[in-house]
């Protein structure tokens, strides 16, 4: 378990394409914060033709107090699971915000200026676990390893409550995979910093 989670308003945008489970990611993170971590959370998503196979985007606001304005102003974290989603939203990240992306699906712009950038082959890991469909949960584990917005235990509980029962074990494995990859990256960069 991590220590106390961040006390201020946090904004996250998940972006990918329809079928990748962007909405599920938002629902799990929001549910974890609101139901299991004593916070307020607001999840909104794009509807319409966008929700039918094209671009899919989910916003999640997490706050220790009542959330009035329910939309992302400038995200603390942008999660890119598709080139289109990344291209569309990459210029709108907080100055000290993070960019997380699937390295097999997104090629960074040569002009990318975000400082905190972390990549993971989430979809490839998911395929290795047997089901490409859990790439979103690998990414959520990765997100959890790199942020302290929501307590890890809360996210685990929310995953268990949100995915189909027979797939809980697989999804938890996917989450662990993403999280441990994040920790290994952090250790690697910490080691680099020391040396």
């Amino acid at each position: 378990m991590k220590g106390a989670t961040t006390p201020s308003r946090k904004e996250v945008r998940f972006t990918g394409y329809g079928g990748q489970g962007m909405v599920v990611m938002g629902l799990i993170l929001g549910r974890a914060a609101a139901v299991h971590d004593g916070k307020s959370a607001t999840m909104t998503q794009s509807y319409g033709p966008e929700a039918r196979g094209g671009a899919s985007s989910t916003q999640c606001i997490i706050s220790p107090s009542r959330i009035f304005y329910p939309y992302v102003i400038e995200p603390d974290v942008l999660v890119g699971m598709s080139q289109e989603g990344y291209d569309k939203h990459r210029l709108n990240i907080k100055p000290d915000g993070k960019l997380l992306y699937d390295e097999d699906l997104v090629t960074l712009s040569p002009e990318e200026k975000t400082k905190n950038i972390h990549s993971i082959p989430a979809t490839r890991f998911a395929e290795e676990l047997g089901r490409k469909i859990v790439a979103n949960i690998v990414m959520l584990g990765f997100f959890c390893g790199l942020t302290d917005f929501v307590a890890e235990e809360a996210i685990r509980k929310a995953i268990e409550e949100s995915v189909p029962k027979p797939t809980i074990t697989l999804n938890i494995k996917a989450f662990d995979k993403g999280k441990s990859y994040a920790l290994s990256l952090l250790e690697g960069s910490a080691a680099k910093a020391k040396s």
Partner: peptide
Amino acid sequence: DESVGHMTEK
């Protein structure tokens, strides 16, 4: 409204 109807919160 649609915004509230489709928004997810606690």
